[in-house]
Write a protein that binds this DNA or RNA. Sequence first.
DNA 1: CGCTGACCCTGACGGC
DNA 2: TGCCGTCAGGGTCAGC
Length: 270
Amino acid sequence: MPELPEVETTLRGIQDALRGQTIERLVVREARLRWLIEEGLAQRVAGSEIIALQRRAKYILMHLAQGSLIWHLGMSGSMRLLDSPGEPCKHDHVDLVLGNGTMLRYNDPRRFGCLLWAREGLGHPLLRDLGPEPLDDRFNGEFLYQESRARRVAVKTFIMDQKVVVGVGNIYASEALFKAGIHPARSAQRISRARYSRLAEQIKQVLSNAIEQGGTTLRDFFAADGRPGYFRQQLEVYDRQGEPCPQCGRPVSRKIIGQRASFYCGFCQR
DNA sequence: CGCTGACCCTGACGGC
DNA sequence: TGCCGTCAGGGTCAGC
């Protein structure tokens, strides 16, 4: 479910309620996520204050004095803030109960998400080698151009590689490539500086717009207050095969690239 | 090193 | 109504 805008939306929905709060207790009902939630984690964090929250790539970090909780929502994960929590529902795997009685409840049907612990959150092996944040100035057309030399993979696969740039998932990769007029299957090394410059700009644009709209809800993404994201109606090609291209009217194509469904206009994108 | 395909898991949906 | 195959916004890992 969540790409960068959805994770950012989740973070914004929870951070004010969590920052400065004490963790009363952590309840793990199902530890078998993408990786097993380590035993003893609940004991380790109980009583600690959440000093700060941060998003890095599609991870949400909660910094405590002695280390950081690292969450990933995987494909189907979501977080809800509950003032008066009732009985947990199906797939409500983890509760974070705060000192003021508020609860953060983590739900993840497919269990592709994770909850990890690290002394230095950003130093965790999974986060250490990630590429730059797409909305950072360090990420631009020249960077993409340099990184893509000798990369023969499809440009869509390339920009979805979290070691190249983080946060660009399957939806926004298709959207940004459409706006930049670049065919998703084109080899990454066969794209000019000028076109990478357009692509970097469009990635920033589409992600920023999606964040403003609270992300994209295809089926099961909801922010921490339960509201869906409203960016779906602004998607120009994703999940629109057969519909007219917004630019030229020819039907939008769908093709599997790097094991992921990809949507594009074969006429407008070269 | 770069790249491909298998795999992790549940649920929704369409065809029969 | 049910069964079966397919697909889904994530990512890692083994093997070539």
